[in-house]
Structures are given as C-alpha cells and as structure tokens.
Design a protein around this nucleic acid. Structure first.
Lengths: 183, 183
DNA sequence: TTAAAACATGTAATGAATGACACGTTTTAA
DNA sequence: TTAAAACGTGTCATTCATTACATGTTTTAA
C-alpha cells in the first residue's frame, strides 16, 4: 500500500485544530510538526485539491491587503470522520528506518578502521545539536504542567523524540569511548 | 537530492564482501541487512543493470541444474573506489523519521483520551516483539567476542538498534503507567 | 510422482517525494 | 524609497519505492 498517503491525515489533523491556508500548512512542516512529519508545498497544494474533491475539506477565499487571495481551508464533518477513523484504527506496521550513517557503519569491518572515530564524532555533533534543539523546544512549547495536559499528544512525542536523541548521543559516546586506542 | 540513490551503495557494499546474484541481494534485504535497509527485487534488478552500465560491477553467467541461468555479480575496482568514497565522505544529513504511530499521537489532545491505552499497548506489543527479535539476532549472529570484532560495523548497528527498541519499549511502559486512572 | 516452495529474472503501472520552474503580492527594515 | 524577505499558490520533471504482472526452473517434502 505504498505509504497509504499519510499526508492527507496530517493535513486533516491540522485543519481539525483550525482553518489554515496551504502556505500555513507548509510552514507547519517546517516548525511545530516538522520534527515528526515533513512535506513540501509542492505536495501540499495538490493534496489540498484532492481532499477538497473528496469532500473532506472546503475553502473560503479571503483577501489580504489589496488583492492577494488566500484560500483558507476548513475541515468538513466527513473529513473529521475520516480523521477519527484513521486515528482509531490500529497501527500494526512498524516504520522501517533508513539511516544513512547506520548503513555506512554496516560496511565497516573492524574496530580499527581509521575512519570510525571521525564518523562517530560527526554524528555525535549532529545528534547533540538535535538533542539541544529538542530540549529547547520542550521547555519553550511546554513550560507548564498545564500546557502539557492541554496538548498531551504533542507533549508526549516531543518528550519521546528527546529521549530517543538522548539514547543516540549516549550510544555514540559509549561507542567512541570503547574504540581501541592506536596500537 | 531526493534520496541520492543509496541503494546503489548498499549493493556495492554487499558485492564488496562476495559475488551475489540479484536474487541473493533481494534476500539480503529480507534477512541480514533488512533491519537497516529494504528494497524489492523490482528495484534491485534495474539498479544492477545501471551499476553494470556505469562499470561499477560486472556479471558472469552460471548454470544451475540443466539450464537455469544465474547472473553472479562482482564489484569492479571502480566500484570499490565509489564505495569507499561514499563511506569516507561525511554524513551530515540526519534522517527524518516518519513514524505513523507518533503522527497519530500528535493529534491526541488530552491524557484522558479513551483511545490512548489501547494505542500505547498495541505499540508496546509490537516493539516488545521487535526487541526480542533483535535480542535473538544479536546472540545468534554475534555469540562470541571474536565474531563481534570480525564484523564490527554490523555488530555495532545491531546493538544500536537493540538499544533503540529498548528505549522505545521503556518509554511506552512509562507513558502507559503515567496515564490517569479512570475518574 | 507430483505439488508446493524456493529459486531466478525481469517489466509495467502507480504512487510518494523532491527540486526546479513559474508567477505575483505584501510587509519590513535599511 | 526601495530592496529584500516573507507571504501566497501553483505546475512540471524526475527520482524513489511498492505492487502487480509475467515467466520459467529446481528442489523438497508429502
């Protein structure tokens, strides 16, 4: 089933919170939800068209300034039903990750490979930055207990992503430290 | 750069260990390397053709039984150079994961959502199975210290995947346990 | 002995995703 | 005032990936 077009559900989910334009949705993939899902505007606009054809969303045109037309999309009752069905259905397929660094590691034969230290260090740097970014996000977006309960799912997955990165960084550090020293 | 065709490097990497047929390669994506990379035979055969056209691999035909022709592919010196270049180059892009379950969680608003317990339980079940599978793989494929040093990269990433699943399972358990009880 | 499973190699259709192309408006800051 | 950045909406070409189509051989186990 390819990917079963999950993009449609992300869009429905976001529109279920508030009406948005294609541009707004695209921005969301760079910001809030960007840690967990990504899409370019060249995917968003055609998908909005399809969702509207199916009757899951509608749009109204608003004018910004003199003549800039914005299409503000709303979810329909049908759309909400589709969204609920998707969320409520099971999720029995685990996502297979394709991590290029991990793939490269697979082809390293010995612990004495001279490329290993730099490879691991580079990833340590990258994942440390990501970890710090997530830490900052978590404290910015969810500073209070109240904010955490108000958007519980988002809080959960941010916190989950943080833990995942934390594990990655720890693993890289331990692996680096365990490498044999130069003979 | 889309995906920069990493499949070609996986194939080169596997052929660098030993000559293989397209069928062998496809099987490898179900077994050894399947935890870390996946591809169907419909991707493998065309890719082999392209790699041969580029001069990175060659093939010899062997006959199995009476008349079944097998194409056994070998990596060339050029292919080895390409492979080394890829491994040695930096890997500055972190892979953005698209986990459908995580995506669904994003749209759960409150910790009292009645769907949360089943959703988390289902994932706990799935990730526990995966964890056990990885544990079994690790002890089967790398039973001795010697075997670990002989295929160090593979050992590292299996162990890494194990740790990752272990974190996922722990997180699911903790999250489940922290859910509010029915009022 | 015979049927199923595994071996073996390909192509075609379709869908998902990226990057480039294309155009125009509004706001903001130098 | 004017140029850059951000806003805003779309298409097109290409690549990546899955599923289905297509065909045949060899081995294994009932």
């Amino acid at each position: 089933m390819a990917q079963k077009n999950k993009l449609q559900f992300v869009i429905l989910g976001l529109l279920n919170q508030q009406p948005l334009t294609g541009y707004d949705l695209t921005k969301a993939f760079d910001h809030e939800i960007g840690e967990f899902w990504q899409a370019q505007h060249s995917q968003v606009y055609p998908q909005l068209k399809r969702l509207e054809e199916q009757g899951y969303i509608t749009h109204e045109i608003t004018i910004s300034g003199e003549k800039l037309e914005k299409k503000l999309y709303h979810i329909t009752t049908t759309g909400q039903a589709i969204l609920t069905t998707w969320i409520t259905a099971g999720t029995p397929e685990l996502t297979a990750t394709k991590d290029e660094f991990i793939l490269k590691l697979y082809f390293i034969r010995t612990s004495r490979d001279p490329r290993l230290p730099e490879m691991l260090s580079e990833q340590l740097q990258l994942h440390s930055e990501k970890l710090q970014h997530l830490q900052a996000r978590l404290t910015t977006v969810f500073p209070t207990k109240k904010s955490q309960t108000e958007n519980f799912g988002h809080y959960l997955i941010l916190q989950h992503a943080l833990g995942r990165e934390n594990y990655y960084v720890t693993w890289l550090q331990e692996t680096l430290a365990a490498l044999p020293h130069k003979a």
